[in-house]
Nucleic acid binder design. Structure first.
Lengths: 217, 217
DNA sequence: GGAAGAACGTCGCCGTCCCGACGGTTGATT
DNA sequence: AATCAACCGTCGGGACGGCGACGTTCTTCC
């Protein structure tokens, strides 16, 4: 599928040949998950890695009251590869939040191919490093911990072409690891400055520049 | 050098052949840096990646008052690979804190070799994912943000075989993105519970189990 | 051995955020 | 159209941590 070639890693770098692509698809399986179901759970033996084709997946660690959302990823992201290559159990759980379609790469099939085809391997490497980069950015914003700037930053990154973000305040709160009330208050301040408009499950970015300024303050 | 074979990625996984090792060393150069000097700076074109052989390196972003320490890494860690493979400028700065010895891998020399040798590529992949995993753990502990548990966790990870940690409270503070005073107070509480002993630029872990319990509380 | 500098210990003030609670609003379901 | 669940807006209390300040102790380097 052409989508795979476009989305996996950087398209312009170490281009995948048709043959490489065949091999990648050959070791993958496209599966579908309903909202709330798990792709894998923390502690399970890591027998496969996943590439998200559509929908959002929430990565978290711990259970019950100690559940912490590590990140939420969407189309083009890779999951479970740390554990799979590291040869241990999964270190976090992955739960579908939408209707989700993912490619599943079984370890047994994938590893021998990777060992033979450097181009695919390089592509996977780049995908992993991209995750690392975004996680590092997250660290920065968690350290610099005023909720206002965190919210501003998240809105800047999450906004689509029309400047709209379709997330509930509760969702934003869990994403940032803060309380819903604080998110509400932050959005209130942004609204005062006419940087955003808020509605039911929806936020419209009016002034991206101001948002950026607040995020990096 | 045998050190390279042992330290890079997982030794037990996709073992490097002698020939692979030759190639890796052939594209590397062992250089030495004095404390305070930079391996690279944010914004510079990413022409090389680095593997730390000895000493500690601090990774940070921003300058002046907006400087934020992303992480501090030591022997066996890889630096600058995100930018190098991503084909953009460095996204953070790397500064030696000790006397540091690092292998420098020039992009020009390394990339063609990687494209030809899957074993090396796989090794690099695993190294990158290990970084990702440790950064994800950091996110968890930053979200779960009582300074006490953060300090407990850091001590648990940073302690050597004898249970000693040689870091100043100021260093720990910047590492966690909190104030020195808070670190001091947290250490005081740990001392009260006889979990640690504190001295000048040195902390001795007495009760790792209690530390672990506090870290995950 | 003495001076300078770095690191440690402690105090008080104040801002930010978490938590619990409650009422009003919107959207979906039947 | 009615009902219900999810979501939004807001208030007050309490805990935690940042910041400035000051004194003490430990190192290092003349």
């Amino acid at each position: 599928m052409a989508w795979l070639a476009r989305s996996f890693g950087r398209p312009d770098y170490a281009p995948l040949t048709g043959a490489d692509l065949e091999i990648l698809i050959g070791s993958a399986e496209l599966i579908s998950k309903y909202p709330g179901t798990h792709l894998f759970r923390e502690g399970d033996p890591a027998l496969a890695a996943f590439l998200v084709e559509s929908g959002d997946v929430e990565i978290y660690r711990g259970t019950g009251s100690k559940r912490r959302v590590v990140s939420r990823v969407g189309s083009g992201s890779v999951l479970g590869d740390i554990a799979m290559f590291g040869d241990g159990p999964y270190i976090s759980s992955a739960q579908a939040v939408d209707r989700v379609r993912v490619f599943r790469f079984d370890k047994d099939k994938l590893l021998p191919e990777l060992a033979k085809h450097p181009a695919i391997c390089l592509r996977w490497l780049v995908a992993g490093l991209r995750q690392l980069e975004s996680t590092q950015r997250r660290v920065i914003h968690l350290m610099h911990k005023t909720v206002l700037s965190q919210v501003a930053d998240l809105l800047g990154e999450e906004a689509d072409a029309k400047g709209e973000v379709r997330l509930s305040q509760t969702t934003i709160a869990t994403l940032l690891g803060v309380s819903r009330q604080s998110v509400n208050e932050a959005l209130g301040r942004l609204r005062e400055q006419s940087a955003v408009e808020t509605g039911y499950r929806q936020i419209r970015v009016l002034d991206p520049d101001r948002l950026e300024a607040i995020a990096t303050s």
